[in-house]
């Protein structure tokens, strides 16, 4: 366990020294700039828009971190041959994959946590500075704790995307891994449509194939509860639990596949 923690912390240190966290500054600037502009343009809707924009930006910035670090993490070690010295130490290849994943998820978590703080800070400032009548008229409180729920599901979704990126990086080049991961991310947003494909096609084979793909490919749409949170719509605990469980099970399978591929690989 200590070994895994050492490797994971080193991944985090690499991200910090590679200046990955600089994107947080960009995020904060974007959010504050947008809130100022929207405050000038809209009447009463600015709080909702800031929440929507903040959550979307969290998701997109997180996606870039997940994909761009995830695809290079293993590839870079192999390509630069730093893995030779590392694997000669008392660790297994499965340890290596799990620790790399844990380090990347830690980086993601720190990023999302800082973004969440920035979002709440902007919302807090707007509440203090805005007219009280407008705040009272909102569907949801300005500093809604359910924003954390939305960010939590974004985190699980991005942890899944990270696992996918890591899986591709165990055997593929960064460009191909990025293409595959982004491709799966986009497919994942519309995956639910495959489940009932038989309603739009006559061929049973095509319907069967679509159903198989539905189970094989990640279904990412359920992780997106931004609209529900922003508009104060109810979200059941069962839904959140099911979605998180689905995410965890999918991550476990993807990491298992990554470990299997990596364990058999020759480092020429």
């Amino acid at each position: 366990m200590k070994v895994l923690a050492s490797i994971a912390l080193n991944v985090f240190r690499e991200s910090v020294r590679d200046k990955v966290l600089y994107n947080l500054v960009l995020f904060a600037v974007l959010l504050i700039g947008a809130s100022y502009l929207l405050g000038q343009l809209t009447a009463g809707q600015d709080m909702k828009i800031i929440k929507d924009l903040g959550l979307s930006a969290t998701s997109i910035f997180g996606l870039f971190i997940a994909v761009f670090i995830g695809i290079g993490l293993v590839w870079k070690e192999v390509e630069r041959r730093s893995i030779y010295s590392l694997l000669a130490k008392p660790i297994t290849r499965v340890d290596f994959i799990l620790a790399k994943y844990a380090g990347l998820v830690l980086t993601l978590l720190v990023n999302l946590a800082v973004m969440a703080v920035a979002l709440y800070a902007v919302l807090g400032a707007m509440t203090l500075l805005g007219p009280p009548s407008l705040v009272a008229a909102l569907d949801a409180p300005p500093l809604d704790p359910r924003l954390l729920l939305a960010i939590g599901l974004i985190f699980v979704e991005l942890a899944l995307v990270t696992a996918v990126a890591l899986f591709f990086s165990t055997f593929s080049s960064p460009i191909l891994s990025a293409a595959f991961t982004f491709g799966l991310y986009i497919v994942g947003q519309f995956n639910a449509d495959l489940k009932h494909f038989e309603q739009v096609v006559d061929s049973p084979a095509a319907a069967w194939l679509a159903r198989a793909l539905y189970y094989l490919l990640p279904n990412l749409a359920p992780f997106d509860i931004k609209a529900l949170v922003v508009h104060g719509q109810p979200i059941s605990a069962g839904y959140v639990l099911m979605t998180v469980s689905y995410g965890i099970v999918y991550i476990v399978f993807v990491l298992l596949a990554a470990a299997l591929v990596f364990a058999r690989r020759d480092f020429k």
Binding site: N10, R17, R81, Y84, S85
Partner: peptide
């Protein structure tokens, strides 16, 4: 083990 032309984490 010392690999040939070793490379380590340059950060």
């Amino acid at each position: 083990y010392l690999p040939e032309h070793p490379y380590f984490y340059d950060y």
